[in-house]
Amino acid sequence: MTAISEASRKRARAPVVVRLPAHLVVLFPGADRLVPLVARDVAEMVDGLDALWPGMRERLCDETPAIRRHINVFVDGRRAKLATPLAAGADVFVITAISGG
């Protein structure tokens, strides 16, 4: 039996809360602004969103794959990448950039 670190336990498959912007949600019928998901990292979270609403991955990620240039993901207040781990109960915000002139 191997010892499991506290960090590994916290990253166990437990729900996180994903907050999606309203203008993204309207593109996916039946999508909610608050989505509880089970995910260990941001990439797995994106997979979960895409499983619920096909096409969501293409809205959030480019082909490299990375989070799109004009999309920001914040996990508990810190900017995240696809490899960013998610602790149980993490608060995840998906925010789109707003530009103007």
Score class of each variant (00 low, 15 high):
residue 1 M to C: 12
residue 4 I to A: 13
residue 4 I to C: 13
residue 5 S to E: 12
residue 7 A to S: 15
residue 8 S to N: 15
residue 9 R to W: 11
residue 9 R to T: 09
residue 9 R to M: 09
residue 10 K to Q: 15
residue 11 R to G: 01
residue 11 R to I: 01
residue 13 R to L: 12
residue 13 R to S: 06
residue 13 R to P: 03
residue 14 A to D: 04
residue 15 P to W: 06
residue 15 P to D: 07
residue 15 P to V: 04
residue 16 V to L: 05
residue 16 V to F: 04
residue 16 V to N: 00
residue 17 V to S: 14
residue 17 V to K: 11
residue 17 V to I: 14
residue 18 V to D: 01
residue 19 R to I: 00
residue 20 L to G: 01
residue 20 L to T: 00
residue 20 L to F: 00
residue 21 P to Y: 03
residue 21 P to S: 08
residue 23 H to A: 14
residue 23 H to K: 08
residue 24 L to H: 03
residue 25 V to S: 01
residue 25 V to G: 02
residue 26 V to S: 10
residue 29 P to M: 06
residue 30 G to W: 08
residue 31 A to E: 03
residue 31 A to F: 03
residue 32 D to R: 13
residue 33 R to P: 01
residue 33 R to M: 13
residue 34 L to P: 00
residue 34 L to Y: 01
residue 36 P to A: 07
residue 37 L to I: 03
residue 38 V to S: 12
residue 39 A to F: 01
residue 40 R to Y: 01
residue 40 R to M: 01
residue 41 D to R: 09
residue 42 V to N: 00
residue 42 V to M: 00
residue 42 V to R: 02
residue 42 V to E: 06
residue 43 A to I: 09
residue 43 A to V: 07
residue 43 A to S: 15
residue 44 E to Q: 15
residue 45 M to R: 14
residue 45 M to P: 12
residue 45 M to L: 15
residue 45 M to I: 15
residue 45 M to D: 14
residue 46 V to P: 08
residue 47 D to G: 13
residue 49 L to E: 02
residue 49 L to P: 10
residue 51 A to H: 12
residue 52 L to F: 03
residue 52 L to G: 05
residue 53 W to F: 07
residue 53 W to M: 02
residue 53 W to N: 07
residue 53 W to I: 02
residue 53 W to L: 08
residue 54 P to I: 09
residue 55 G to E: 09
residue 55 G to C: 13
residue 56 M to F: 06
residue 56 M to R: 11
residue 56 M to A: 14
residue 57 R to P: 02
residue 57 R to V: 11
residue 57 R to F: 03
residue 57 R to D: 01
residue 58 E to Y: 11
residue 59 R to I: 03
residue 60 L to M: 14
residue 60 L to A: 10
residue 61 C to D: 05
residue 62 D to L: 04
residue 62 D to K: 06
residue 63 E to T: 04
residue 63 E to D: 13
residue 64 T to Y: 05
residue 65 P to L: 04
residue 65 P to G: 05
residue 66 A to E: 15
residue 67 I to G: 05
residue 67 I to V: 14
residue 67 I to W: 04
residue 68 R to M: 06
residue 68 R to S: 01
residue 69 R to F: 03
residue 70 H to W: 11
residue 70 H to T: 14
residue 70 H to L: 11
residue 71 I to F: 00
residue 71 I to P: 04
residue 71 I to W: 09
residue 71 I to E: 06
residue 73 V to I: 15
residue 76 D to H: 06
residue 76 D to Q: 05
residue 77 G to N: 08
residue 77 G to S: 13
residue 77 G to V: 05
residue 78 R to V: 04
residue 80 A to E: 10
residue 80 A to V: 07
residue 81 K to I: 08
residue 82 L to S: 09
residue 82 L to C: 10
residue 83 A to L: 10
residue 83 A to G: 12
residue 84 T to R: 09
residue 87 A to S: 15
residue 88 A to D: 04
residue 88 A to K: 04
residue 89 G to K: 13
residue 89 G to W: 08
residue 90 A to W: 02
residue 90 A to G: 04
residue 93 F to S: 06
residue 93 F to W: 14
residue 93 F to H: 13
residue 95 I to G: 00
residue 95 I to N: 00
residue 96 T to S: 12
residue 97 A to K: 12
residue 97 A to Q: 15
residue 99 S to L: 10
residue 99 S to M: 08
residue 99 S to Q: 15
residue 100 G to Y: 06
residue 100 G to C: 13
residue 100 G to H: 13
residue 100 G to M: 09
residue 101 G to E: 03
